[in-house]
Every structure is written in C-alpha cells, then in structure tokens.
Design a protein around this nucleic acid. Structure first.
Lengths: 207, 207
DNA sequence: CTCGTTCGGTAGCGATCGCTACAGAAATAA
DNA sequence: TTATTTCTGTAGCGATCGCTACCGAACGAG
C-alpha cells in the first residue's frame, strides 16, 4: 500500500501554513456543541468562537457534520472517558458502576464546562436523522457494554446466578441519562451523588 | 369586570368563520413538537400537518412560541396527566410513585404517539432561552411536587422519620427523565417496567 | 527571483427561517 | 342590497441557515 508515495515519513507541509491552532479550535467546537447541541450550534457560532472564517473551518474539518463527529470522538477520549475509566477501575461490575455513577455526578455538574453529557444531550430533537441515529447507537452501545460487564461478573460468580444483566444495565443507563438531564436542569453535584447512592441500593443483594 | 361588554354570554361569532378544527390542529401541533422538539419544528412543518396556511395559524394561535405554550398546556392536561393521576391514585407516596413509574413505562413507549415525554425532550438544546427556562421550571416543579408528597407521608408516619424527601424526589425525577430518554432511544415497555421495579428497590425499607 | 501549493478573507450563493401585508372570500348586521 | 367584521390564500419580507467561488497572501522548492 501507498506504493505511489515516495516519502517515508509524513509529508513536509507545503504551501501557506494554517494560522490557527486546530486542537484549540476543536476544543471550542466541543464546548459549543456540548452547550447548545448539534442543530442549535450554527457555523457562524463556531467560526466566531474559533476566531476563524467559514472557509478555514471547512478546509480544516470538512462540513459541519464531520466536524461534529470529530467533536464526539474528542469528547469520548477526554471528558467522556472518565466514566468507562471509573467503571474499569474496580475489580467488580458492582463497584465499578458505583464508582462510575459518582464520577458522573461530579463530571456532569463540573462548572468548568457545560453541564450534562454531550453524548446524551447534543442530538435530542435533531432533524439530521443520521447524526441522531449515530449518537443513539453510541448510547445503546454503552448500555450493552454495561450489560456484558455485568454478565461477565455473574459468570465469574461475583453476582448471584439469577441476576438479570440486561435489565440491570438498562437501569444504570437510565439513571445515567437521567442524571445528565437533571444536571442540565440545574441539579447540584450533591444531589446527583445521592441519586447514585439510591441507584446502588437497587442493586441485587449478594446471595 | 367586563363592564364594557354588552353581551351576557360569549359573543355571537361575527365575520367569516374559521374553516378548520382548532382542537384537531392543536393536536397535530402537539404531535409535531413532541416528536421533533420546539426549535426543530418549523412553522412550515406545522402548517403542512395542520392543513392550513401561515396566516391562519398566526390568527388562531399567535406566534410559534405561544402555540408551543398552548401545546405544553394541552399535553399536561392529556397525555402528561397520566403520571400525576397515577401518583395521586394511591394512598401513600411510595405506592403512588411505584404506580407512576409503571405508568411512565407504558406511556413513554406507547406506539400511538411519539416516544418519551414532551416536557422532558422538546426543549433540550433550545436557543430561545425563555422557552427552555419555562419547561425547565415545569420539570423542577414536578420534582418539588414529588418532594412535598413524600414529605407529607413522612409527617403522617407512612415513611421512616429519617427519610430524605428531597433526595428521594430527585432520584425519582432522575429515573423518570432517564426513562423518557431511553424510550426515545428505543427502549421497550418491558425494559422500562424493569427499570421502574429496580428504582423501587432503592426505596428506604419500612422502619 | 519565479513557480506551485495551500491558506485566509470577502462576498455571496440558494434555501429556509419566523412572520406578515394585502386583497379576496364568507359570514353577520343594518 | 350595502356595510362591517373576520378568515383564507398568495406572495414575499428581512434574517439566518450551511456552504463555497474567488483571489490575494504566505509558505517551500527550484
């Protein structure tokens, strides 16, 4: 592959160099889409926040939709990574989920950035069906990931044999998405910590 | 009051009568705002679904925002009334909330109308701040209503004296809003019924 | 220097947004 | 009948939407 490419390394940049920081501009886009969602964030809003003009945005990121997809990927690798990291930072699904719910309580109400979860809130009421479907499948995939995590613990004997992993995963996903919504409605971290505690009380008792 | 109004009854209609059913048109508007949200529903979408032209819409309902407010009121008195009715249909807060959560599982996934709750989903990512704030205060008011319902039961001795009514109300509100989101993501009624059951397991045991 | 290449800014495309001026149509009042 | 009132449909307002043609500016290569 790449037989027609004479250079070993990545090509030396030719032509006029980019005059803005692509990463910083992407971070601005993350903030805007996080705060206002996909549709409500206009290209004019984006270029104003990034300090660039539309042709620069389109040259660097493609169109609005591909920029949004890059924003989603960036979010998942930064702010959004806090949750799976908490989940996998404990030896059992139960402890991991408890830690994840508390991490969400802190993350969703952090005053350093918009409230709630970008993956949950940015494509509600989105007329571009493919974008909405994309993030929906991300959310549903996260629920299925929870389910297999719980199922593995049941198989390993960490949870009672009768545990309904699928139902438990949907419950946790529901609480998480609800926490995102409540955070956007102004719920405090302390309130969401209590929500996390209540949710864990629903967990099946050790047999 | 109304001293300048010579007629006792409502005035006899004068001029050309309205050629469409105002209630039916409003029901169409409810369906559209419910499905697509406030901003993503255009006046062109509304007039097309109602079978009327823009001037008729503006004459009958004012502007888009006042139509939406009428839609919200209509929703609260019809589909949305199922939840408070379930809550108040039981003698205790605990039983009422259990019944309400199961009613939400059925209502939010009813194939006869859009999924989820209009009050929860229609103003996420809404640039018209006053509209967003309005529905946010409806949601927060519903949580406070849950809280005072629980608090009354604690005072009446139906719940243990140490019960944190505020935290419990936020938890139930979080689960409800999460159920709405999950329903819009395609969750089935059976799945949400299980979510309701899990949520009730978190309820403090009788002392 | 002169190329070739890439980026930046101006300026504006066609489409859609919420909304309305205007005139004809359909009712009641006299 | 004529006058008054209210609704309907056409047609289009100014603003904003996502997006881009164009050309000068800024770089490395020769």
């Amino acid at each position: 592959m790449a037989a027609d490419q004479p250079h070993e390394q990545s090509a030396v940049p030719r032509g006029r160099p980019r005059s803005f920081d692509r990463e910083a501009a992407l971070a601005q886009a993350v903030a805007l889409f996080w705060e206002h969602g996909y549709e409500a964030t206009s290209v004019a809003d984006l270029t104003a926040a990034m300090g660039i003009r539309p042709p620069s945005l389109y040259a660097a990121f493609g169109d609005k939709r591909s920029l949004f997809e890059e924003v989603v990927a960036s979010y998942q690798q930064t702010h959004g990574a806090v949750l799976p990291r908490a989940l996998n930072g404990e030896p059992t699904a139960r402890a991991g989920i408890a830690r994840m719910l508390h991490a969400a309580a802190a993350e969703y109400t952090d005053p350093a950035h918009p409230w709630g979860c970008l993956l949950t809130s940015s494509t509600v009421n989105c007329t571009t069906r493919e974008v909405e479907r994309e993030l929906r499948s991300v959310r549903n995939g996260n629920v299925r990931a929870l389910e297999s995590r719980i199922r593995a613990d049941v198989a390993a004997g960490h949870e009672p044999p009768g545990t309904d992993a699928a139902a438990l995963a949907v419950f946790v996903g529901t609480v998480l998405q609800g926490m995102s919504q409540r955070a956007r409605d102004g719920a405090t971290q302390a309130e969401l910590e209590q929500v996390a505690d209540f949710a864990m009380r629903a967990w099946p008792e050790q047999a």
